[in-house]
Design a protein around this nucleic acid. Sequence first.
DNA 1: TCATCAACTATGCATTTGCTTAGTTGTATT
DNA 2: AATACAACTAAGCAAATGCATAGTTGATGA
Lengths: 203, 203
Amino acid sequence: MPKTDKARRYGEGREALLAAVVHVVADKGLRGLTYRAVAERAGVNNTLIAHHFGSRDALLEAAMQWASERSIQLSDLSATEEVDEDFARALVDMVASDPDLQLFQFEMIFESRRRPELRPAVLKLYNSYIGSLENALMRRGYTSPASLARAIFAALDGLVIQQLTVADPESIYAAVVRVGELLASQPHFEHAEPAGPATRIQS
Amino acid sequence: MPKTDKARRYGEGREALLAAVVHVVADKGLRGLTYRAVAERAGVNNTLIAHHFGSRDALLEAAMQWASERSIQLSDLSATEEVDEDFARALVDMVASDPDLQLFQFEMIFESRRRPELRPAVLKLYNSYIGSLENALMRRGYTSPASLARAIFAALDGLVIQQLTVADPESIYAAVVRVGELLASQPHFEHAEPAGPATRIQS
DNA sequence: TCATCAACTATGCATTTGCTTAGTTGTATT
DNA sequence: AATACAACTAAGCAAATGCATAGTTGATGA
């Protein structure tokens, strides 16, 4: 039996369709993103998509907007004070408990290469992640936080992909912890110090 | 005008089709992977695909095999002695000069979630990358090289994705260099020492 | 030189797709 | 209660797709 959300109430169709897009893309890919598949998953008639969004492309764009708005998750995580065991556990748990949102976003990142209208949302997402991480690193006194933030984010991003596709959660957990250790071994303040000089750790 | 490789010689069709798959997937996605698109790109009749491979699924599987065999690239790079400026430049140049192979592989990694027959090849690729990196780290005396190799590979993987989608090559270059610095700051031997004790750098 | 077989092409078709058109139903406003 | 309009459904169609069938062409070995 296919997963369908039934018993929708009047007026909830649009939102249900957007949520359905994320799940359909996550488990059938963009090739499986059809009016009928999305509608079935949302529990509505397929022509409702054309009514609300006009075209498949517009549906995808709307879904990207919608998903990125509710994708505070990693952004919150990145703004955390440090990449420690708690962070690692939270990240691994997040991916394990809601892989579809991550999968959808990765699909959209690659799709944005071919669909210019998706680029703004994708860029905003990435920049918000990397930017908040960069701020956190700067507050903690790391040197040249821009390239460091990019590198650390890339590592976390890459580990999420590995967890989604080829590796078991515990290996990923260990690797995330290792990323935290790499960070800790770089020169930085002992605690976040918004202003003024502070103790700098040398390693 | 569409990119078509014309003037094929008798007997080269199969190989041309496999190469075409990589390019088609890279610039139109898996949704754009149709018999007609691939055949046009390869400069052959679309029914030749059914002749050689039988089905679209089998074509994709064959292309994955084919591509991973000729994807010695990152593996070679990972086995390099250290992640320095030369390595960073080589990585960035590789992605810039041949993005299609990388894009194809990323698409396949995600596709392997839904197509079990692709998993062996994907796992083999990842394990060969991470494994050779782990060996290189072990030779250089890094502690717990398994999680470190996974983390470093994830960082490089993530940076490749960023270069392919959202960031300019020079930002990526800087971040790759930073990854090298993170590695250098970890305790390890000064030079690769296959056996026996050696000078251990403390940071 | 000719037989054989693989590589290759031409035609065609059932299915799936995006989306249009024409309608129905629910809700909010007066 | 009547109006009006948005949310929603039913039916259907032109185009694209995967692939089957039937044939043609080129290389190769006897």
